[in-house]
Computed example of a mutant assay.
Amino acid sequence: MSFDAIPGQTKVTEFLKQGIRQRRTAHAYCFAGPRGVGRYRTALELAKALNCDAAREDACDRCRNCIRIENGNHPDVWIIEPDGQSIKIDQVRGLQRAFHYTTSENTTRVMIIQQAETMTVQAANSLLKFLEEPITPMVAVLITEHVHSLLPTVLSRCQVLRFAPLAADWIAQKLEGEGFNTAEAWVAAHIAPGLDEAREIASIDGFALLCERVIQWSGEIVSGKSDALLSVQTKWIHKELDKERLELVLDLMLLWLRDLLNQKLKRTVPPVFLKWEDSCRRQAPRWSTSRLLHGMETVIDARRQLAGPVQPQAVLEFMVLAMQGGATNVQSRRRSF
């Protein structure tokens, strides 16, 4: 593999290649971006290119150093991952001790720190000293989804490179090539920023049924009746549906509302829910444009709340009420006495 084989990140890889070509590689990088977009793969390719016997701007993938790095057994390329919930100071100290040993003259040592935002304050401070006083030619690569969670003093020592989400059509094409259903692959590709996560979503047992339930729930919400609230209790809140799956439900709802809005505005863009175009055409007239926009904002807000220490049922119920215009607007099928 090489930098050129990393999809969707040409801006980042060209920047790294230029730095290697001009011998102006930074001593520390922060690869920031969502999971599954090639951050770790790029870090490995950087380590290979810096130590390739061919001494080019990219790895040859044939020399001894390239092969050892690819196979994970090069003594001067270290990969640190969280030990439990965090990266601890002992892990950084172990790295420092290892780097004290001499190495060959043309070697650039590389440390790759996965989920760098999980470093404890002690570990981050220890790494900071290491970055400020390197004892050998080295490059550090900090990989993170949450760049602002890094210690500011550590981040200030890094060249931040931002990785963009991969194109949905590229992800969908890859999933179809792996045998996934076209309609389900297309939906998963619009939810996940990378191929691995999209594959996980498309592999969910009953994923198509989950999409249909979200579409039905949207119809219940726009009807203004209490069915939408009952669905929170009967369909979404139970032991088998954890918070991560509920987040997926809200992601699906947001995409569905966007499809409805595009249908409402007669935009000539391919729908995300390809398999359910007829449902979209039937449901769209029941929504006003302003209500769809408000609904999308409400779903985004609920998605944000769901990531915190809250009761999922309360979040979903409040979302439904907000989308229906408040509790007083929720109609009930029960007849008054």
Rank of each mutant, 00 (worst) to 15 (best):
I204G: 01
L150H: 07
T144K: 11
R199M: 06
V187Y: 01
H190D: 06
I204E: 13
G206W: 00
A202Y: 01
I201A: 04
G177F: 04
A164T: 13
E197Q: 10
A164I: 05
A188Q: 09
V147G: 12
E200V: 12
W186Y: 15
A164L: 09
H146Q: 15
H190Y: 04
W170Y: 10
E176C: 10
H148C: 05
S156Y: 12
P165W: 06
A188N: 08
A168E: 13
L161N: 02
E200C: 01
D169S: 10
E178Q: 12
F180Q: 01
A192F: 00
E184T: 09
L209F: 00
Q159W: 03
S156W: 09
A164N: 11
L195M: 12
A164C: 08
D169R: 10
E200M: 14
A183M: 04
A198H: 06
I191H: 01
E145Q: 15
E184W: 02
A188C: 06
E176M: 11
P165N: 08
V187C: 02
K174Q: 14
P193K: 10
S203L: 07
T153L: 03
G206V: 02
D169W: 12
A168C: 07
L209A: 15
R157L: 05
F163N: 10
L209I: 03
Q173K: 13
H190P: 01
V154C: 04
D169L: 04
R162Y: 06
H190K: 09
F180V: 01
G206E: 00
H146L: 13
L166T: 09
I191L: 15
L161Q: 15
I191Q: 06
A198M: 05
G194V: 04
L151G: 08
E145G: 12
Q173M: 11
G194M: 05
A164W: 08
F180C: 03
L175M: 14
A185S: 11
D169I: 03
H148D: 12
L151W: 04
A208F: 03
R199S: 09
T144L: 10
I191A: 04
A185C: 14
A192K: 05
Q159H: 08
H148P: 05
E176R: 12
P152I: 08
A167S: 11
I204W: 04
G206N: 05
